[in-house]
Design a protein around this nucleic acid. Structure first.
Ligand code: FES
Ligand code: FES
Lengths: 141, 141
DNA sequence: AGATAAAAAGAGTTTTATATCTTATTTAAA
DNA sequence: TTTAAATAAGATATAAAACTCTTTTTATCT
């Protein structure tokens, strides 16, 4: 469903949502240790997310990555779109060139039902909310 | 969701279900033309499916690939398992080492709901049924 | 000002997925 | 019995994804 890069990106964002703020930043190394993700690879992903204004960073001493309020009000869908592109949920699940209810494949109806449900979850709740849930219910990141 | 190999495999099986039988076989070339799938690649996939007894083949003149009755009574889930392995629907969607309701990630509940629905569709209806639906409703393969 | 610690950027490597090519084997028709 | 047509098998090639390494830039602390 999601590329490994995207999985890493989502987890990194959630980790930042739980552990950082404007004045509590984390270096790549700490994040990569916390999530068990290859350090340099994670660095690339975080850079990409920062460019898309889904995470924030500051260079130099005491610098690091973090989520500001705006970042925390964003959604996981945006993270997914930034990494895997905006087609993930609109391409035919069987790889056919078109995907529409007018011209469906044999799994279209079922795929559509599920993807809309997943999409709703991913765009309706903001990252802040998910972070709160993670904290309260001790959910893994 | 599915690898390209798996998408090709599913489509090939459905194509065979609609167009072949014990005494109406098709060569790789015809199938690859019909589905617009690279010929040699498709050959590999069909060999794999034949080994798993999900398709049938006969060599030599007038040979080709086809589905016998048993093949048509199988399910798409078996096809998927034969190609992408049996973990597709049981691994954590975020790539975490475990996936269970006891130890869920932040998307587990939603992912589970959807995967069970998809699984049900994929194992409950047999290939024959899907083929009939394709035929009646002029669905793409 | 200089040293240091961090992200940013870019180049390079490895691994996996996808695709192709070549040769062998099998079967049936001519 | 020879030839043609098909799958089977194995080796190779290409492309994309995953991962690593090195250098540059920037900010902060001493
Ligand atoms: S046409 Fe295949 S999923 Fe929509
Ligand atoms: S734990 Fe992540 S999907 Fe089940």
């Amino acid at each position: 469903m999601f590329s490994k890069t995207c999985q890493y990106g989502i987890r990194a964002i959630l980790y930042l949502a739980v552990h950082t703020s404007e004045d509590k930043k984390l270096g790549v190394e700490q994040i990569s240790n916390g999530l068990d993700i290859p350090k340099h690879f994670l660095a690339k992903i975080l850079q990409q997310l920062t460019k898309h204004h889904l995470a924030s960073s500051s260079k130099g001493r005491n610098g690091g990555f973090y989520l500001n309020t705006e970042n925390k009000n964003s959604s996981l869908l945006k993270v997914i779109h930034a990494i895997d592109g905006s087609d993930v949920f609109s391409l035919c699940i069987l790889g056919l060139p078109e995907c529409s209810s007018q011209n469906p494949c044999s799994l279209h109806q079922e795929a559509l039902k599920q993807r809309s449900a997943m999409l709703k979850i991913l765009e309706d709740q903001d990252i802040q909310q998910i972070a709160k849930r993670i904290d309260l219910k001790h959910i893994k990141i």
